[in-house]
Amino acid sequence: MIQTIGLKKVFNTGGEKTSVLKGIDFSVQKGEFVAIMGPSGSGKSTLLQLLGGLDVPTEGAIKLDGVELQKKTEKQRTIIRRRKIGFVFQSYQLLPTLSVYENIAFPLHADGRKVDSVAIHELLNAVDLKGYDKRFPYELSGGQQQRVAIARALIHQPDILLADEPTGNLDRERSSDILDLLSAFHQDRGQTIVMVTHDLFAAGYADRIVLFKDGLIETEVQREDDDYAEFLSRFMA
């Protein structure tokens, strides 16, 4: 689905070159839920931005369904983004002047697509915000805002959902709600999700955890059914 090859990113800050990504080979399969973990400054957010086409790498390639993102113009990347990618951010980033309904409809409008109001209401139900369509962001709690943001990120049925610290601004309980929600979309609808987090609790929801350290992948672990059984017997012994 999405694959990076030898991804490098160097930032120029005040004449000083900082290497944020130092050669990342990374891929996500369709239907996977991957968590990217690591301390701040380890390059995990930069990777997410590159995956979303918000930026281009200094070196290396990003392939989304075989399309090399780094070879596309900014406009082309935006169009790919609004068709294939959904974004969820730490600080929700709802558009304050738009109602909940309008926020969710935004990606469709931006792409000039017909707005499917049935789909929007279905999504609102799915994120447990039935009847909130006419509210405005400032009338909602943080957790509710993030659920709107998830609905907005999914309205155009993106191939891949990119979530950048989606629980970073929430307490543990609200975080669990959000993660359960993402998990449900992953399990019930096979939604591919890449989530950046520094929170072990959040990362645990994924199928796979990729640990970043100093711009490189430090280690990677995957949960498989047989090692779950093995885990249980060991854990309970």
Binding site: K75, T78, F89, Q93, L95, A110
Partner: peptide
């Protein structure tokens, strides 16, 4: 700035 950034992130092109 944040709002415009969000619009860009979720699908507005520069032109838009």
């Amino acid at each position: 700035v944040k709002e415009i950034g969000t619009m860009r992130a979720i699908g507005f092109t520069k032109g838009q």
